[in-house]
């Protein structure tokens, strides 16, 4: 099928950037979206043009590397999916597709569709871990964790840090990402002990990275590839308030 692409091209962080039009004639329905971009890049390289740069890694929907705005929606029109799991069967012959990078002040464009998401890494570095050396894997039954707690922690831990929550939020908030990381560790006995200090550090870092506030529109959960619950944001708010009121260093 024939696809008309309007792709955001930007040479570097300082460049203003603009949309460039490309036409692909031999796109098949079974191609993934990224394979379609590969096809475009092959064509561009053969012509001697610069390839369109975009992030990708596993192409199995689990690494969180790929992520672009497709027709104004993070990861495209399929809900709870990564860009790599979006296939061309979702489009019709002759469709025009707008492809843009995730846009937020905290995600500066590096080049074309690639953005710098290290602001999310900074939030993790500020406290998204258990600070004691846990050594080798212990006997599983030594630390009792109920099935419900394990499932709940894993639901939050499923966040792949792709940044779609930020891109989908009208305030460019990273509350879902931060809330998921805080909830994941707060639900488990190994992480629970440091919840107060961790929450304060991660929320403060989120502020420093220039993310916006959460206004509970719930758009982040709808577009999140892992369908992370917005209640993790409420959990973050609860833990933060509790820490500020009760926690003493």
């Amino acid at each position: 099928m024939k696809i008309i692409l309007k792709i955001w091209r930007q040479k570097n962080r300082q460049d203003k950037g603009e949309f460039c039009d490309y036409v692909l004639e031999d796109v098949t329905r079974d191609m993934s979206f990224l394979e379609m971009l590969d096809m475009l890049n092959n064509k561009l390289v053969k012509q001697g043009d610069r390839a369109v740069e975009f992030d990708h890694d596993c192409r199995e929907g689990i690494c969180g590397q790929c992520g672009v705005m497709i027709n104004g929606i993070a990861h495209g029109s399929l809900k709870n999916t990564t860009t790599c799991q979006l296939h061309m069967r979702e489009f019709k012959d002759g469709d025009t597709i707008y492809v843009e990078p995730f846009k937020a002040s905290a995600f500066p464009v590096v080049r074309d569709l690639k953005v710098d998401r290290s602001s999310l890494d900074h939030i993790i570095v500020s406290g998204g871990y258990v600070s004691v050396d846990t050594g080798q894997a212990p006997e599983a039954n030594n630390i009792p964790v109920t099935y419900e707690e394990a499932e709940s922690a894993f639901d939050a831990a499923a966040c792949i840090g792709c940044g779609a929550c930020v891109a989908s939020c009208k305030n460019s908030s990273a509350a879902l990402f931060t809330g998921a990381k805080i909830t994941h560790l707060a639900r488990l006995p190994q992480g629970e002990k440091e919840t107060a200090s961790r929450t304060m550090a991660m929320v403060d870092q989120m502020e420093q990275e220039n993310f916006g506030h959460c206004s509970n529109t719930e758009a982040c959960q709808v577009e999140c590839p892992e369908n992370i619950s917005v209640l993790t944001i409420a959990r973050m708010n609860y833990e933060y308030n509790r820490a500020k009121i009760l926690f003493k260093k």
Binding site: W8, F19, G72, E100, A104, S105, S172, N210, F211, G212
Partner: peptide
């Protein structure tokens, strides 16, 4: 926080 908004 929003910076430049999406064109579409």
């Amino acid at each position: 926080a929003n910076g430049v908004s999406c064109s579409k």
